[in-house]
Amino acid sequence: MALNFDDRSHENGFWINALIGAVAAFVLGFIPFSTVLGGVVAAYLQKGETRMENVKVGAAAGAIFFIPSLLGLFGFGFLGILTGDATGFIVLMLFGIILLVMAAIYTVGLCALGGFIAHAVWEDDFRKARTTASTGTTTETYDEAQY
């Protein structure tokens, strides 16, 4: 399977585009709110028909980006076990769960926001790409009233 990054990139599939968005969010991690950019990338590649489809692919990119945070919860549990005290384990696990929920809201929520932003910015381009892909023509027209 070859990846497409042109007008037919929605043919890559929902999860491939979400994975690419998650990787973009990770690579751009040095930028504040890079998860929004990951959602934008995923939605741009998906070129969904509806706003909700683009929000979903952005949220899926955030969920994929969030997976390493789940490993952090196991690390907190391991640290709690090393203390040798049940109270330390419980406190560290509760602290870990609170951090995990905050990370989920941040990553999934902001990636979904990126999908929403991408749809709002490129809605006309998405419609043109779907029309071009369904008819098989590559002729682009300039509509004066559109701009």
Rank of each mutant, 00 (worst) to 15 (best):
V55E: 06
L37V: 14
G80L: 08
F14P: 12
T107H: 15
D85L: 06
I97Q: 03
V41F: 07
F65V: 00
G62H: 11
P32K: 11
L19C: 07
T135R: 04
M1H: 12
T35C: 13
E144K: 11
G84P: 08
A118V: 04
F95D: 13
R51N: 00
H119W: 11
S69K: 12
Y106K: 13
G39D: 07
F33W: 10
T138V: 07
A103N: 15
T139Q: 15
E11W: 09
A104V: 01
R51G: 01
L79Y: 09
G21K: 00
T107D: 14
G96P: 06
F33S: 13
A22V: 03
G58N: 02
I16M: 12
G114D: 06
P32S: 05
I16D: 13
E11N: 11
L110I: 00
M93R: 01
I97C: 11
L79M: 12
W15Y: 15
D143K: 04
T50Y: 07
V36R: 05
A118Q: 06
H10F: 15
G29P: 04
T137A: 02
T107L: 15
A22H: 04
T139N: 14
M102Y: 13
F5V: 06
F95E: 14
W122R: 06
V55N: 04
I64K: 14
G88V: 01
F66K: 04
G62R: 05
L92Q: 09
V121S: 02
A129G: 01
F26H: 13
L37A: 10
G62P: 08
T87H: 11
T138L: 13
F14S: 08
I98G: 11
A43I: 02
G96C: 08
I20L: 15
G75A: 14
T132E: 14
G39N: 03
G77C: 07
E140H: 11
A18W: 09
G84K: 06
A2H: 10
L71E: 00
A104H: 06
P32V: 06
L92W: 03
G84E: 10
A24P: 05
T141S: 14
G13Y: 03
G75T: 14
F66S: 04
I64T: 06
F66E: 01
G96A: 07
V121N: 02
T83S: 15
T83P: 05
F14H: 07
K47M: 13
I20C: 01
G88I: 06
A86V: 09
R51K: 15
A43K: 02
I105E: 05
T139Y: 12
D6M: 00
N12M: 09
L79P: 01
A61W: 05
I81K: 11
G96D: 00
I67L: 15
F5C: 02
A145E: 14
I67R: 00
E144Q: 10
I81C: 00
E123D: 09
T141W: 10
E53L: 03
A59D: 12
G84A: 02
A112P: 00
L71R: 05
V101N: 02
P68C: 02
H10C: 07
V40W: 03
T139C: 00
D143R: 09
T83V: 12
R130Y: 03
L79I: 08
A43V: 01
G136A: 05
I67H: 04
A104N: 10
Q46F: 15
G75S: 15
L70C: 12
A18V: 06
D85H: 10
G39I: 02
